[in-house]
Amino acid sequence: MNRLGVGGWAILVVAALFFGTPLVLTAAFSFWEGGDRYGFEVYGLLWNSPKLFEAMALSVELSIATVAALIVLMVPAVICMNLFAPKLRPLFEFIATLPFVVPAIALVAGLSALITGPEWLIGTPFYLVIPYFFIALPYAYRSIDVGLRSIDLATLTEAGQSLGANLGQIILMVVLPSLRSALVGSALLTLAVVFGEFTFANVLLFHTYSVYINEIGQHEVTAAAALSAASFLLTWIAMLGVLIAGGGKTGPSGVR
């Protein structure tokens, strides 16, 4: 009665076909050299393309910088809010929900209208770290907040203080270690999402990995296919990290 049954298997087989086919065929397509010829030509081309590696390096740097910004700017603020200013929680919740309600393209419109200088800020690709920070904010905030709630911060702090620890010691030795899996999880998710981010980079005209794929895809579709298949693999590795860090729990999804 409660077996998987024909219906259950049918659902799963259809799903496997839908999700498997594009992956397999994309990888296969990347070997196509026109007509009936297949080979590694496009991979050689990509390997000798300095622009690809520049774009990849930039995306990696941006991902790491965004994670750093979250750790320096958001994590301490959320911990301090929970400890000293729980009344500010609604404000934090509002800020963390806003990037979901304001689509990325709208935020970039607002940003470019409001912030028109100085050049040292908006001229460097690292300006992107600011919008990326907010793209990552909703789920990074959520997972840190859930992590904090589950450890009963107040009691831990009181216990720590009664043992003679000061605030810094408590945060470093008690709070952060217990947030480990939440932190690693949201860091990896942020890496994956920022690495593939396109909206801001494209509108603000910076050459990140996604922008590069799009560009090369305009005239070399097979190269774009090769990079797409590689991207899936990269995302997979990042998510494997999340799964291992989160002890089998899947992280929330990123923002597009």
Partner: peptide, 26 residues
């Protein structure tokens, strides 16, 4: 699901172009 939910944007678009685009393999 965790991977595919985060596989979006340009790479996803090209994966489908490679598969069911006008020149796609499928």
């Amino acid at each position: 699901a965790a991977v595919a939910a985060n596989f979006a944007g340009v790479p996803l678009a090209f994966a489908f172009i490679s598969t069911v685009g006008t020149l796609g393999l499928l």
